[in-house]
Design a protein around this nucleic acid. Sequence first.
DNA 1: ACGTGAGACTTAGAAAATCTCGGTCTACTG
DNA 2: CAGTAGACCGAGATTTTCTAAGTCTCACGT
Lengths: 191, 191
Amino acid sequence: MTYRIPSLNGLKAFEAAARHLSFKAAAAELGVTAGAVSQQVKRLEMSLGISLFRRLPQGLLLTREGAAYLPDVSRAFDALTDATEAVAPALNGRKLSLGVDPLVADRLPNGWPRHSKELEPYVRETRVTDDVELIWSNELDALLLAAKTRHGSLSERAICLNGIAAALYFVTRPGLAECRQSRAIIESLES
Amino acid sequence: MTYRIPSLNGLKAFEAAARHLSFKAAAAELGVTAGAVSQQVKRLEMSLGISLFRRLPQGLLLTREGAAYLPDVSRAFDALTDATEAVAPALNGRKLSLGVDPLVADRLPNGWPRHSKELEPYVRETRVTDDVELIWSNELDALLLAAKTRHGSLSERAICLNGIAAALYFVTRPGLAECRQSRAIIESLES
DNA sequence: ACGTGAGACTTAGAAAATCTCGGTCTACTG
DNA sequence: CAGTAGACCGAGATTTTCTAAGTCTCACGT
């Protein structure tokens, strides 16, 4: 099973340039320079062996092939975006589910985090557990543990309570290690 | 208009690994090493903020999220492949359409290329014209011209007849410059 | 219990793809 | 006839991706 798919960056550049009929405008949208878009599109055309645009001095025009390609590409992008958004909502505004090791649950600041106003936007639920597997299965986003894990590929951050190193570790999937939610939880603990 | 799409290489690695439930097998299919697939998938998981696989020492298992993501990704890949194949059939086995400058049409080897057996698999049609625009509009794949073009971004190759430089140039879109079809046409002329 | 093999992981360094920047060209515009 | 806008090119820098070599865990057979 093998697919014939051109470079995604090339397709993105094509799609944006075709919508704007301008490399410059497309570049602004994509956050790169116009030269980069020009090169991407050229590479794409080379890999396909056809021309997608007619370059006129006053701007771009789609060729027949380019015009035929564009809607299909856009639809595929939509489908990928929807699927991605469905399986992994953008981190912005997402609330984490947090597990707390039974060994640390009683050592925490009183009522933490249930009654912490500042954490409310970042934590969806809290559960008492020390099962690292729950992270790998995406049932939990992060864990507060009393001991270092041995699962090397998890991200682990030691916490200081009142400025003193405590046997307390914030453990997440690497993908969540540096997000705002994680930072907020850690700060709330250390302050 | 902006899409949220993870890296295409990451998605390809995920798709192949999910089908085989093995990074090693996926790597073989993709023609890279297993380490590369592992890294691609990890990057993808980080960018999404979720885990797609459970790594067991004896192999892979899809997480619930991974299993949900896979069919959507496959469908999108199918759609892109179909669209690409429709607009630009793979170069393998494709025949080029060739334009011949009226100024050179009579100087060519007798009957060329109509009665050339060796060119038959590579040339679909021949037309007498010197209009470079036909290349940009994909109506022609290549041109035999009597003079250099001034369209810098076209690929241009000087032809020698009987070992002597002639006023004869093979002009194509860059994407077709080095394909077998082009080489065959040039060789047939120079021999 | 102890090798052995398979499969995944990590890391450093190499290789490739991509971006930026500066300069050029062409066609519009006042 | 400048001046401007948009696209192109090439060189060099930067970022991404790949490879290679070594480690770890588990299953299996002796």
